[in-house]
Design a protein around this nucleic acid. Structure first.
Lengths: 263, 263
DNA sequence: GATGTAAAATTGGATAGCAATTCCTGTTTT
DNA sequence: AAAACAGGAATTGCTATCCAATTTTACATC
């Protein structure tokens, strides 16, 4: 493995995008150091990584907190995401071979099955992953990293937001984008990507607690391997094994019946 | 000021984009700590920031080095930059008001004057800045940060590259892009952005030392405020005061007569 | 010259400690 | 009772020193 601080940064990132660490939550050095069983310095390095990623904010002499983006910043993030995905769409519409389209369709199909099976958590994750698969097909690792970062930030946004509108008309956006792109109707596809994101962001209402604020110790306990204090939080919130990858996030009630994970 | 490690990361970044610290250069903790007069830990934190930015590579138990991107990665970076700037162009063509176009033209004009005056160093910087101004007009800070990071990485690339082709036909690309966009000829403008970057990257020849490898101490001496050991490197390589901002980079001979700073 | 081994140097991390700043709390004042 | 204040507790940012693991270097051997 690389460095300890990277490992811890990864866990914190995971906890944030799982909505277990919510915006504004204090990331105290001493507390985290104790939780992870490392020195304060390692924690600090991990937090620096999070801050560079836009997931944490460091205030001098006050410490680090899970980032709490403003509505303005939320819109900018979605704008940037739209721009990136539209650009990738343009590239794919020219360059993608049959295998690529097939992979995308297969992914959508898997998600559809998950929805049909009522496995909301899985559907949620697959809905997010679609966008990553999409970008991965551009075969540009730099672009992938940028996109992944933006997606993480949109996921963070969803922690402090209630999306109280009808998601149903977004359900088929993914497959429609694929169809349009493969047919070469790029402009239409790009518009769809735009409205897709726009309708998501329009539904946002901020300044309203959506996810419960857990203490860092509660929030992080499911991710700790050895010394798992088998607290309540670990057993009833985490779980859901799929494809060898653990899926910790279970969307809360207000997102359950929808395609909420979709940026 | 924010943190000490951030300040040091900024200086190192500056030194890298000024081609004073070249790819592959070892960033030893002890050495840098001594140079900056801080503890090793602060240096490590700074280097983590650089690594997150793609400007350094950290190898476990071996230390940090200025990043040495492969040709593949170089092309991906330019592809990503193209994608971003095309996207911004599309936004600006719809949304930008007269004041914005004027600002862009004014910037180009300043660069033209610098070229005419033979101030290659300034022209170089202005050529780079144009792209940043362009993106700033999108009024999206998130996008700006992503773009700035990509520009830094292209600048890093130019450290290990010789651009031995004719830049002359790129000289007016900026103003042509402005003209096309203002006239609503978006597609043409996007093509021009693409060919602009493509012709730059096509001229690259890698695996050839372009900039001399200085020791970190030599490379960093111009940036240190107080304890400036007035070594030779400081006096003959750095300087050039302009607009209140110090411009340390003087392009070497092979880039001098061109618009080399242009990503 | 190639190879193997011991010494030196370097990294990643732990720990203890210190000045500066911020937070908290209890008291005083209005 | 509410506001203002003061001082101690807690936290951060950083230094210094130490240690194990790993890598690099130097040297000796084949």
């Amino acid at each position: 493995m690389s460095s300890r601080s990277q490992a811890i940064a990864d866990i914190l990132t995971r906890a944030i995008i799982d909505h277990r660490l919510v915006p504004g939550c204090k990331l105290g050095e001493r507390e985290l150091a104790e939780i992870f069983g490392v020195s304060r310095i390692v924690v600090r390095q991990a937090v620096i990584r999070l801050a560079d990623d836009g997931l944490a904010q460091i205030e001098r002499n006050r410490g680090a907190f899970v980032a709490k983006p403003s509505m303005q910043e939320a819109m900018e993030i979605y704008d940037a995401l739209t721009l990136v995905e539209q650009g990738v769409a343009a590239q794919l519409s020219e360059r993608l071979g049959p295998g690529g389209w097939a992979e995308l369709r297969q992914h959508v199909e898997r998600q559809r099955q998950a929805v049909a099976a009522g496995n909301d958590a899985l559907a949620d994750v697959l809905g997010q992953e679609f966008h990553s698969v999409f970008v991965r097909l551009s075969r540009n690792k730099v672009m992938q990293d940028i996109h992944a970062q933006l997606v993480r930030r949109t996921t963070l946004l969803r922690s402090l937001i209630t999306a109280d509108f009808d998601y149903c008309n977004l359900l088929d956006d993914h497959s429609r984008v694929i169809d349009l792109l493969e047919k070469g109707r790029l402009k239409k596809a790009m518009e769809l990507i735009d409205t897709h994101h726009r309708s998501v962001v329009r539904g946002y209402i901020m300044d309203r607690a959506v996810f419960p604020e857990l203490s860092p110790r509660e929030a992080l306990s499911p991710y700790l391997a050895g010394d798992g204090d088998k607290t309540d939080a670990a057993s009833d919130k985490a779980g859901a094994e799929q494809n060898g990858a653990r899926i910790y996030a279970i969307p809360p009630a207000n997102l359950r019946r929808t395609q909420a994970g979709d940026p």
